[in-house]
């Protein structure tokens, strides 16, 4: 594992910790898209079907369990926690995620590395992760104001994607035949979705003003 991959995993982990901290400390999930969180839970559950069949390293196994458990905990809090659920902006969270799930599944049936249940679901999780941030970005854009923790959450998620791309470039040059093209193309699409957000985050940081996304 190279340093970029590790840094990517850590920023991913930090983004989830920021989100858990926000929910725990403020007992509020205002500004957070439940749809994006449910998509991430689905991403982890379908990608880590190999949890009990393919052992890579203790690090991988622990991280997989952490990602599954934390994403389910966030969804549970937003749906069931008596205080947290009241702050959920249901009317702003309007992205039609069911079509995205369907489209990703059809794509995974057509484009996969091998036509097995595990590989199809792996490809599905890769495609779904690429677009899972969309409901969150739509919600932030519709609500206008973005609070600090929510902004940092999306920033760290974006950093994780960026670092994974550097990791793939590094692997391409240092490993003989690294050809995870499904993950690479989807990863590029996914990181592109953050470009706009990064730009406005940079503007707000530079001018020292509150982060606002244009409608």
């Amino acid at each position: 594992m190279n340093i970029f991959r590790f840094a990517g995993d850590m920023t991913h982990l930090i983004s989830i910790l920021i989100l858990l901290l926000k929910i725990y400390a403020t007992k509020s999930c205002a500004g957070i898209s439940l749809k994006t969180q449910e998509l991430y839970a689905l991403v982890f559950l379908t990608r880590y079907l190999d949890l009990f069949t393919d052992y890579v390293s203790l690090y991988n196994t622990v991280m997989k369990i952490v990602f599954i458990a934390s994403s389910l905990a966030i969804v549970w809090c937003m749906r069931r926690h008596p205080l947290v659920r009241r702050s959920y902006d249901k009317d702003l969270d309007t992205f039609r995620h069911q079509y995205v799930v369907l489209a990703c599944f059809v794509l995974a049936l057509l484009l996969n590395e091998k036509f097995t249940i595990q590989e199809v679901f792996w490809a599905f999780s890769i495609y779904l992760e690429a677009v899972a941030i969309l409901p969150q970005l739509v919600l932030l854009q519709r609500s206008g104001n973005v609070d600090n923790l929510t902004g940092q959450y999306v920033l760290f998620l974006g950093a994780y994607r960026g670092l994974y791309i550097i990791n793939w470039i590094y692997r391409y040059f240092t490993e003989d035949h690294f050809t995870r093209w499904i993950a690479c193309v989807s990863g590029l699409v996914q990181t592109g979705l953050y470009a706009d957000f990064f730009y406005y985050y940079y503007l707000s940081w530079k001018t020292n003003t509150k982060l606002k996304l244009p409608a």
Binding site: R5, D9, H12, R47, D50, D54, V56, N60, M63, K64, F67, E113, K114, E119, W122, Y164, N167, H177, T179, R180, A183
Partner: peptide, 10 residues
């Protein structure tokens, strides 16, 4: 065959 290798990334 690379396709049958395990996925080593998260």
């Amino acid at each position: 065959d690379k396709a049958s290798e395990v996925h080593d990334e998260l």
